[in-house]
Write a protein that binds this DNA or RNA. Sequence first.
DNA 1: CTTGTGTGGTTGCATCATAAAACCATATGC
DNA 2: GCATATGGTTTTATGATGCAACCACACAAG
Lengths: 156, 156
Amino acid sequence: MVKRTSFEGDACPIARSLEAIGDWWSLLIIREALFGLRRFGEFQSKLGMAKNILSARLRSLVDHGILATAPASDGSAYQEYVLTAKGRGTFPVLVALRQWSEEFDDRPSEIATILVDREKGRPVRKLELRAEDGRLLSSADTTLKPRPTPRRRSTG
Amino acid sequence: MVKRTSFEGDACPIARSLEAIGDWWSLLIIREALFGLRRFGEFQSKLGMAKNILSARLRSLVDHGILATAPASDGSAYQEYVLTAKGRGTFPVLVALRQWSEEFDDRPSEIATILVDREKGRPVRKLELRAEDGRLLSSADTTLKPRPTPRRRSTG
DNA sequence: CTTGTGTGGTTGCATCATAAAACCATATGC
DNA sequence: GCATATGGTTTTATGATGCAACCACACAAG
């Protein structure tokens, strides 16, 4: 078997997240879900993707606990796909991707939308990584440490 | 032609970024590059991926302006792959993916590392999205607006 | 009760991307 | 010259994707 290399058991949290949402369509589906879409047909027509692929992706996202199926909402006998807390938690990832495009895209004029805060209608700030004490951190200011083994209760 | 649906001309900045770094390996290569790796063999042995795939990914990342090839550094006649500013700009994306895993992974105990600030050795804060005036924003507090057409000089 | 239509999928088949291994090219050591 | 390490490319098999066609179910009309 050649198998599409799974990162499921990988110890790297980036690999683990890519395992769940690292394919071509998942983040776009989540983006639409954050925007309010819920129905199979809505996703299909909005994203213009093949129905079998959409079906497989939705199932995978449900399996990963990112979407949940709700029995109905407008009376129709079909199901809807709604984001879980885990699904809504991908919001920073989407914002980071968006801001990366805005900053580095070769043809930024082709970008059609800007993310604004709903209350004021003004563009949002850039995502910033800060230390505990509030210092702004770049990648060079960070490093990785082994995770301390969490001590189990009633073991010591 | 069935063609792997390109998002190149898409107006959505998320789709555009996925076009460049939305595949299985690119972000992991970038992660290693941020960590200091530069040589083909380093990436290959660290990531354990097939050499042809690595070769194709490195070429794609160079084409997208995320990596650049440097002629040498230790005298050997081979080339190295170093991150550009655009490449280093993906750091928030990687942090967002990491933090998403840390917060929502089903088996968080399998995550081996934590991201700390180099100076203090303390875990970093969570990425936060803020409005211009500093208010903390969730996805529900944001909305999309059409990008205002930038006025060209000497047109009006 | 049969027919038609819309929504929500699944199935078949062609094509593309990925993976593993074999192969090639260049430099280095002996 | 011969073995070996590095840095790839080529070959070939298989999994994933994309499109179209088909199926299932609900609902409405006749």
